[in-house]
Amino acid sequence: MSEDSQQEALAEWVRKLKNLRVLRLKSTDDLGQPSCLNLKSLLGLGVLSNIYLVGKLQKLSEDQFPPSVTRLTLSASELRDDSMPTLEKLLNLRILELFSGSYTGTRMVFSSKGFGQLRQLRLWKLHELKEWRVELEELEEWTVEKGAMPSIREICNKLKMLPEDGLQHLSTLQKLKLTGMPKEFNAKVNKDHGHQD
């Protein structure tokens, strides 16, 4: 049986697990590099709440995940199109983690009224597959529209940027953890808040 046939069979088998609550899938080739993750729609898994995926995804469709999902982690997905319009429609999503190599596009938009239940957002070097030493295209623009993430409590950001405009609208934000920011950003924050070196 070929690798594609095996993945197809696995994808079909997963779809039949109607009582599945946690799904963790990792797809790598013989050299340990991320390989394609053949993932079909999981919409029929009505109690699935926690999804952790490592491997390349072609694109996320509108019916990719069931509305029961509360935690989603993606790594090495290499998604090229902004997946936020799809992910923000997961009405019960409370934790979103986008790790190394999960998104290779240059623009990401959190739209108004999107991610209504999101409590925690973790972004970690989206453009970098560190353990595989692969550099991907960097994010150039990150927009958080007014009204997005109205329930957010914590953002952990290990990107080299923040939204130009948007975080000031997040009135429920209690914890903001930033690492890897350029010196120019730290200097701007200190200046804006009246801190002296």
Rank of each mutant, 00 (worst) to 15 (best):
Q6I: 14
H127G: 12
R107L: 11
W142V: 15
N92V: 03
V14Y: 02
N50P: 00
S5N: 09
R122Q: 11
E8Q: 07
N190C: 13
A11D: 10
E88L: 06
G180Y: 10
L10N: 05
T104S: 15
A11K: 03
P67R: 00
L93H: 08
V22E: 15
G101N: 10
L23P: 08
G114L: 14
W13A: 10
K89W: 06
T179P: 02
N190Y: 06
L91H: 09
C156H: 11
G147F: 12
M84L: 11
H127L: 02
K130G: 13
N186W: 12
A11N: 07
G32H: 03
L87R: 03
Q64V: 04
M161H: 02
C36F: 13
L159S: 12
G166Q: 01
R15M: 14
L37C: 09
L136K: 07
T73W: 04
K125Y: 07
R122D: 02
G32E: 01
Q174L: 03
K146I: 06
S77E: 01
W124N: 10
E140M: 14
L53F: 06
A148H: 01
T172A: 01
Y103L: 05
N186S: 12
E128N: 09
L162T: 05
L10S: 03
Q120G: 06
L31F: 13
L20D: 02
N92I: 04
L74S: 07
M149L: 12
G44E: 01
L48C: 10
S83N: 06
Q196M: 05
V134Q: 10
L129S: 14
K130F: 05
E154F: 03
L123G: 02
W142K: 06
L42G: 03
E97V: 07
M108L: 15
G55I: 00
I95H: 12
W13T: 05
K183Y: 02
P163T: 02
P34E: 11
K113L: 07
L79G: 13
L123W: 06
M108F: 07
P163E: 05
V134S: 11
G114S: 09
T179E: 13
M181H: 02
L37Q: 05
K130Q: 15
E135R: 09
L129P: 09
M149G: 09
G194K: 00
N19S: 15
L159V: 01
